[in-house]
Design a protein around this nucleic acid. Structure first.
Length: 691
RNA sequence: CCGAGGGUAGCUCAGCGGUUAGAGCAGGGGACUCAUAAUCUCCGGGUCGUGGGUUCAAAUCCCACCCCUCGGACCA
């Protein structure tokens, strides 16, 4: 288990400060965070840097629309982003911004090195210019008629109708999407990075495991032709950094964005450009960028070229992930599957998403699907049913009957415990390779075995004959649960904390897998994690409000706080959940349900159950009916006896643990103590049908 | 049009040259009652996209075709 101490620098891509964080973004941050937490748990030094990509025309325009100065706008957005990330437990060491003095210094420094290296070329470019707004227009801000199929209102780069691509200057009757004015053509000098000069360096970089093979194959396509020069400048007015010595010229934000990784590092080091570069150049530091497959081009070509030209080394590896789809399709606002991070957190536990995404994440850049049915099934059956259940079935038994004292695992459990411990090598490798799907699969298999062990030993029976043997079984089971929780800790830090609290453990480290749990008195058991109620998902999907979240603590750049700041904001939403309207039914379908009035003749609580009441109903001509109803927490036997109720009389009888139930009483409410029986006016008589 | 990835049980996927193709979930039967109705057990369920080929042996390798996803082809 002795492994070399590693120094690792990790980044996630900088989200654009133009909008909120959505669950598509979260794939990357959760993927990165799991890896980062895993490495930290192993005792390695990890620096996790991120921040907002805060420059560019879209941001300038968006700020203008909101009547704010760009600085104000992006600082507000930065706060919002940090809060969203904190809710999902993303443990950045530094969350910063490309609009920062450190980044300006670094951009100017690297640009001067690029210039000195002779790989910047200046030449004239003709572009559309909006004479009303006084800005040069990016292609996507120009609309016009397609020169090919004549469809109106097409973007400046390609036609959505016929698929033809063209230059914005080819558009018939072009208009500015910003002001509606007819744009003029204007020429202005631009600066280009001559990428072709780095062909050999880039090819050898990519040929040496910079990305995984599928990405490398894709990249190989780019080398087929001459690598095109990259326009790194933009004309004023532009929200960004002015290029020194060239008034009215700004760095394109895709130049300063990756440099923003270095700026975040500088900020983290409480230093300047030189400190960041020194850290970056430390040959012992492993540098990894987690990115989406959409920005491979920038990170595999431009960014390494910038670094190499500046006399810096490229990062060690790029970890590329796919995009998120929801229920098999691209996220879409019209389909209601475009889900913001805060919207999710208002209704659902962030841990569920962390777990579910983990079960679907591998090292490949394949897209992954969030299917809500699968999401519910896996969280409920795996996370709650297997993993949490292993502890929740043992800890309370130990507390109730054996003074909560753990002992020594029973000898027959040792092979199982050994097997779980030995799995750590595989778990480690799977995490390292970012195969979290493999991690969760393996953990579930082990949890199955541990549950089977408990089942086979039946400590609830054993405890009557041999308390110490029962203690040994429960200790063994808890030990299994404890190690499995450790294995899950990078994915579920909050859950792991709860287990640690329950078992009275110090925060576990990766090396604690092999150390036995101390013999001691555990704390009273507390609920570890809630199962998913599908109604919450429905409620979330129907929530279109952009309502602000109640404050859950100040956004924090303190990594220790980041993990705990994710308060369970969804809890308050429970009471307000609305059930979605069921699909329209026909009159015949409605008539198929035979509802009858009945009088409760007898009522008695089922002692072995915490929910069920046994009722005998007088349904008039239909005779007596035995019904088991889940209303024990809401009504007493006395309240029920003699009252009239409505029940479904033609429901198929259902065999339940405590007998057959011959119908269902009608009531409203979410359940538990909040069940409200339908009342009937007193003149109604048992057996009457409800129409 | 080019490229990449995928098509294996109802669903999500593992297996990627070698015993009768697996898991979880869902469905059905049984057991148990410690647990957040959870757990354990048994059962049903697959011409491994289609057609060829290589091989003693193919879900696994090769070729062709079909279908899905993503990317590129213009800008970056």
């Amino acid at each position: 288990m002795t492994q070399k101490y590693r120094k690792i620098l990790v980044t996630s891509a900088l989200p654009y400060a133009n909008g909120s964080i959505h669950i598509g973004h979260l794939v990357e941050y959760i993927q990165t965070d799991i890896w980062v937490r895993f490495q930290r748990l192993c005792g390695h030094s990890v620096t996790y840097i991120c921040g907002d990509d805060a420059h560019g025309t879209p941001i300038m325009l968006r700020a203008r629309k909101e009547g704010l100065e760009p600085d104000r706008f992006i600082s507000r957005m930065n706060q919002e982003h940090q809060q969203s990330f904190a809710r999902f437990g993303i443990s950045f060491d530094q969350y910063y911004s490309t609009h920062s003095p450190e980044n300006r210094e670094l951009c100017e420094l690297l640009y001067s090195r690029l210039s000195a290296a002779g790989c910047i070329e200046q030449r004239e470019v003709e572009q559309f210019f909006d004479p009303v707004e006084n800005i040069f227009l990016p292609d996507r801000f120009i609309r016009g008629t397609c020169p090919n199929c004549k469809s109106p209102e097409q973007y400046g780069d390609s036609c959505e109708i016929c698929g033809k691509t063209y230059d914005p200057t080819d558009l018939i009757n072009p208009k500015s999407a910003v002001s509606g004015a007819t744009p003029e053509r204007r020429k202005s000098p631009h600066f280009f990075l001559q990428l072709e000069k780095f062909r050999n360096a880039l090819q050898s970089l990519i040929g040496s495991g910079f990305t995984d093979e599928t990405v490398a194959r894709k990249l190989a396509e780019w080398f087929g032709d001459r690598l095109k020069d990259w326009d790194i400048s933009r004309d004023a007015p532009f929200f960004g950094f002015e290029i020194p010595g060239h008034p009215g010229k700004y760095f394109y934000n895709w130049l300063d964005a990756p440099i923003g990784y270095l700026a975040g590092l500088a900020k983290f080091l409480h230093g300047n450009a030189a400190d960041a570069l020194e850290f970056w150049q430390d040959p012992d530091v492993e540098i990894y960028h987690f990115i989406g497959k959409d920005i491979v081009y920038f990170h595999a070509l431009f960014w390494p070229a910038i670094l190499i030209a500046s006399g810096l080394h490229p990062p060690r590896r790029l970890f590329v992930h796919g995009h998120l789809t929801v229920n098999g399709e691209k996220m879409s606002k019209s389909r209601g599957t475009f889900i913001n991070a805060d919207q999710y957190a208002r209704f659902l536990d962030p841990q569920w998403l962390r777990y579910y995404l983990a079960t679907r994440l591998t090292a490949t850049p394949a897209d992954l699907d969030l299917s809500f049915d699968d999401f519910t099934a896996r969280v409920n059956s795996e996370l709650v049913g297997k993993l949490a259940n292993l502890i929740s079935r043992c800890a309370p038994m130990l507390s109730r009957n054996l003074d909560g004292k753990t002992g020594i695992p029973l000898a027959d459990a040792l092979p199982l415990i050994k097997e779980i411990r030995e799995a750590q090598a595989t778990v480690t490798q799977l995490y390292e390779e970012r195969n979290y799907a493999g991690v969760t699969r393996l953990i579930c298999q082990l949890a199955d075995k541990a549950n089977k062990y408990v089942e086979d030993q039946a400590p609830w029976t054993l405890i009557k004959k041999d308390t110490e043997a029962a203690r040994g079984v429960l200790t063994a089971a808890l030990e299994c649960g404890r190690i499995l929780t450790l294995y899950l800790k990078p994915i579920l830090p909050t859950y792991a904390e709860k287990v640690e609290a329950c078992l009275r453990l110090e925060p576990m480290k990766w090396s604690d897998a092999v150390n036995s749990m101390p013999s001691q008195t555990i704390n009273p058991f507390e609920h570890l994690i809630t199962r998913i109620d599908e109604r919450r998902i429905q409620a979330m999907l129907q929530d279109n409000s952009d309502a602000a979240l109640p404050p859950t603590g100040a956004p924090s750049t303190d990594p220790a706080a980041a993990g705990t700041a994710a308060a369970p904001v969804h809890a308050a939403a429970t009471a307000a959940i609305e059930e979605p309207l069921a699909p329209t039914c026909t009159i015949d379908q409605f008539a198929a349900v035979d509802l009858r009035v009945a009088r409760v003749l007898e009522a008695s609580a089922v002692t072995e159950s915490d929910k069920l009441m046994r009722l005998v109903l007088d349904a008039g001509p239909l005779g007596k009916r035995n019904i088991l109803a889940g209303i024990k927490k809401a009504y007493t036997a006395e309240e029920l006896t003699g009252r009239l109720v409505i029940f479904c009389a033609n429901l198929a009888p259902r065999k339940m643990k405590f007998g057959v139930s011959e119908g269902m009483i009608l009531a409203s409410g979410p359940g538990g103590a909040e069940v409200f029986l339908l009342a009937v006016d007193s003149k109604a008589s048992p057996g009457q049908r409800v129409h």
